[in-house]
Amino acid sequence: MLPIFEHYNGIIPEFPLFQEVIHRPFIPHLRVNRLKVEPAILVDAFLKKGVNIVSSTKQVDYTFFMPGLYSPGNLPEYFLGYIHPQALTSCLASIILSPKEDSLVLDMCASPGGKTAHMAQIMGNSGLIVANELYPSRHLSLGNTLNRLGILNTVVTSYQAQEFPLGQKFDYVLADVPCSGEGMFRKTRKGMRYKEKMKKGRLPDLQKKIIIRGYDLLKAGGQMLYSTCTYNPDENEAVVNYLLENRDAELLPIEMDLRYSPGIIAWMEKIYDKRIEKTIRLYPHWVDSVGFFMARISKRA
């Protein structure tokens, strides 16, 4: 077993178990698209076909582990838009934000569109989601995801997230920002070839600009979810701390039925705002998924 992420030994609880679990295979996970099919009907159909399907969280009735299913894209149910392969922790971002029906939502970094489509599902295809993705080359996969899943309430834009026009304020903002992706190690399974990225230096600067712009785009009383799939505190707690230093933002608690760790308030001789303990860290040895970080932020009314 390759020892990696050693520098997080002091902040990741039960570190030996963490290191063991990230080398285990990733169990396929999918979300049932309630816009097209009722989850119970689909589960019955899968069980009749002898497919192993297991609910992954009590918080919703439409997310499932499917052990042994390694090509969900070949299923007719995928082509029909009934299912979308998506890590459990990725699903949690939209579940925690939970935009209400008929609201106005901005997804700042939308591609490949899983979280955008999930929010549209939660909103019952109502209201409007602005799915922003800077790179036109990623619009194809974004468009394919939205089309296949029958998403009707979305427009796609192509602005730099940190420079998204300030003219319109939103009820909800999802800032699932570009990150070093350390939490994906288990899913990408690069094994011995894995090298921790050395050029992370510029990411926190970009992430800080995006979180500030996302906050400024919120209506009073609006909510933002900041998320990454990395363990790196410089891309997580430090970014949220920067927001708290520069804006009158409020951190909201996050409730879930899965085991998590609160955000850390000290890293490499830096001390963060105590409120950052309201952010959460999800680890693959506690939640059978990829590593994830979330902060739920509110703009005071």
């Binding site: 008929d102 036109p136 468009g143 089309n147 309430n153 427009v155 834009t157 192509s158 003219g167 319109q168």
Partner: peptide, 22 residues
């Protein structure tokens, strides 16, 4: 997009794709 308000919001942005092509 059923609401005029939402159409108004969308029309203020430079959009690359709107909804689903029918």
């Amino acid at each position: 997009m059923r609401s005029t308000y939402h159409l108004e919001v969308g029309s203020q942005l430079k959009v690359a794709k709107v909804g689903l092509i029918a």
